[in-house]
Amino acid sequence: MKNESIKILQKRKKAILELWMKNQLAEEGLRDDLMNNEDLRVQSEELLDALLNNLSDDTVGDAESSQFDTVTDILAGISVSRARQGFSPRETGVYVFSLKDALLETLQQEIKDPVILYAQSLKISKLIDSFGIVTFETFIKGREEVILRQTDEIAEISTPVIRVWDGILALPIIGTLDSSRTQIVMENLLQEIVESGSSIAILDISGVPAVDSLVAQHLIKTVSATRLMGAECIISGIRPEIAQTVVHLGIDLSQIITKASLASALRTAYTMLQLEVVKKRRFEKENA
């Protein structure tokens, strides 16, 4: 008796695929901009093949069974690639669950006994549900990979140390300053101080969205470390909002030289190095 429903499903594969495709195409959120119908059909057929070929009496109640490995692999591949392509979780979910509708509808057409139909539907439904869960797990994993990669990239590109002048380094900090980033910033800065023999470092925080007590703590740490290396540290790019929060939070920055803009910090640095920037004059006339 039981075998019957599986046989029915396997026999009517073509019809199921058609039904499934129809369901998918009828779905409002179909993203034909991300994937064309041909690809979708190929993908769906592959998955359906793998599912029906491995469907048997023993496996119908157990989505974890090793016979479904290929199905899980295909599903994982599909959801990871969808995560990268920018499908929403809902669209990915609908993709799997619309298969359930197709399968159940086919069963309904073939099996007339309500008791058997109910029992079989329940089993198929459970199976597809667990496949749905697998899909979501891998979908989220795919998304997380994307996020992790981006985080790494941001950390790498966002801490440059620039030599603006002989003996003057500038460090524009863009983005939130957390402890791991402070560590990277500090290491890069101190290393560069040693290599270039600089005596002044300018920390520009105009790209830091907000300064709370923790961020201020990190800044003070960086400044103290620079002092231990025998260099002076100037913090520039203090926006009015930042000045307000810093004072409201009761953070003491009086031991640190702070400037409103990078230009004024640079001017201070020149003064400290006893340099002077003068406008070029035409000496030829005077010399003649």
């Binding site: 040693v194 470390a225 231990l228 025998g230």
Partner: peptide, 17 residues
């Protein structure tokens, strides 16, 4: 004079500026 970067970071992390 001549403090190494790693030493400087350690001192700061130890709370000894």
């Amino acid at each position: 004079v001549g403090m190494q970067p790693a030493v400087a970071i350690t001192l700061i992390e130890l709370g000894l500026p």
